[in-house]
């Protein structure tokens, strides 16, 4: 590891991996919530046209890609806001028009095909220092803005009609999220690649959904898993001499598969051990008359000699084994 860090380009690559690994799943969480998981992919297609224009005109492909991607992101929201059924077709024209234009333009330039592959699938080890600095600044901005606005993005994605009724600027937040997606796509294009970045935005979130019980904790888990996949992917790609993007995404998918198998087993075991109170029409509450016993992070109610704990939409029989022994003295033996 220390020999890795001694390499200048490797230090850069790892910094980029950390930032992309954090930013992509954080922004992706709200795309998953809005059921727009694949929108980043479409924006990535359009960004390729921007890359091509940059290469052809000899300007920095990062900036031309950023302009193209942000324009596409605003376009996506404007098209969605019209609410027309033809919206899907408009998006398809925009996305595939973007990638087609990109491929055609790059073929007219002197850039080699390996250069194109670098943008499509990631080539962190060949990225210039200036690019890394630009990416780093953008990634920090994306993470910061998303973090500050996370409650509002959550509210708007959760119930757009309610958000509008209480006066939240729904369109503004939707465009902001879309632009953050575009910036994330461009920031990640050298690490993961335009065709693979959506995987890093979505898959860590899919994994996080399996292990979290709240949106808050799922955000934390997704960022952690994204970060781990991204950093370990860059290191693995150095030793295995594989492209960084594909390696990162394979690691993220591997994590997802392992976690889903384990969580499936855990859920099954829990369900089997789970003792549900039979037919329970009565609703316990602070004033229902049954004694409440708060302990171990939940409340039990003493009900005809049983201890009932609220769970999902029903009540459970208190499980003396699953809960640590409470501090109180009313422990009922079962």
């Amino acid at each position: 590891m220390s020999d890795l860090l001694a390499l200048d380009f490797m230090r850069q690559a790892l910094i980029a991996a950390v930032l992309v690994g954090l930013a992509a799943p954080l922004v992706g969480a709200f795309l998953v919530q809005r059921r727009m998981s694949l929108i980043g992919d479409g924006i990535g297609h359009v960004a390729l046209a921007g890359v091509a224009v940059g290469i052809l005109t000899g300007s920095m492909p990062v900036f031309t890609a950023l302009i193209a991607a942000v324009a596409a992101a605003v376009g996506v929201e404007l098209i969605r806001a019209t609410g027309r059924t033809s919206g899907d077709i408009a998006l398809a024209v925009m996305f595939y028009g973007g990638i087609a234009l990109g491929v055609v333009l790059i073929s007219k330039s002197t850039a080699s095909s390996s250069n194109l592959t670098g943008y499509l699938f990631g080539a962190i080890l060949t990225t210039s220092r200036t690019d890394i600095v630009v990416f780093a600044i953008l990634a920090v901005v994306v993470v910061g803005v998303t973090w500050v606005l996370r409650h509002r993005f959550f509210a708007v994605a959760n119930d757009e009609e309610y958000a509008r009724a209480v006066g939240l600027p729904v369109m503004g937040y939707n465009i902001a999220l879309s632009v953050l997606t575009a910036v994330t796509v461009v920031v990640s294009m050298r690490v993961v690649g335009l065709l693979l970045i959506t995987a890093l935005m979505i898959i860590p979130n899919a994994t996080a959904q399996l292990v979290s019980r709240s949106f808050r904790s799922s955000l934390a888990w997704a960022s952690l898993i994204g970060l781990a996949s991204s950093v370990s992917g860059v290191i693995a790609s150095f030793y295995a001499e594989t492209p960084s993007g594909g390696t990162i995404v394979l690691l993220a998918i591997g994590t997802f598969l392992v976690v889903s198998i384990v969580s499936g087993l855990v859920t099954r075991a829990r369900r089997a051990a789970h003792d549900r109170a039979e037919r329970h029409e009565h609703e316990h509450g602070p004033v229902c008359g049954h004694q409440a016993i708060p302990h171990g992070g939940h409340v039990d109610y003493l009900h005809d000699g049983h201890r009932h704990a609220p769970h999902a939409d029903h009540y459970d029989e208190h499980d003396a084994q699953a809960h640590p022994a409470p501090q109180d003295t009313q422990e009922v033996s079962r």
Partner: peptide, 25 residues
């Protein structure tokens, strides 16, 4: 406003408290 909803979105996990906190925003 209490809209008519047959089910709350299940695309991501959200706790009861997290939904109610939206009301303060």
């Amino acid at each position: 406003y209490v809209p008519q909803r047959h089910s709350l979105s299940a695309s991501v996990r959200a706790t009861v408290r997290e939904i109610v906190e939206i009301g303060r925003l």
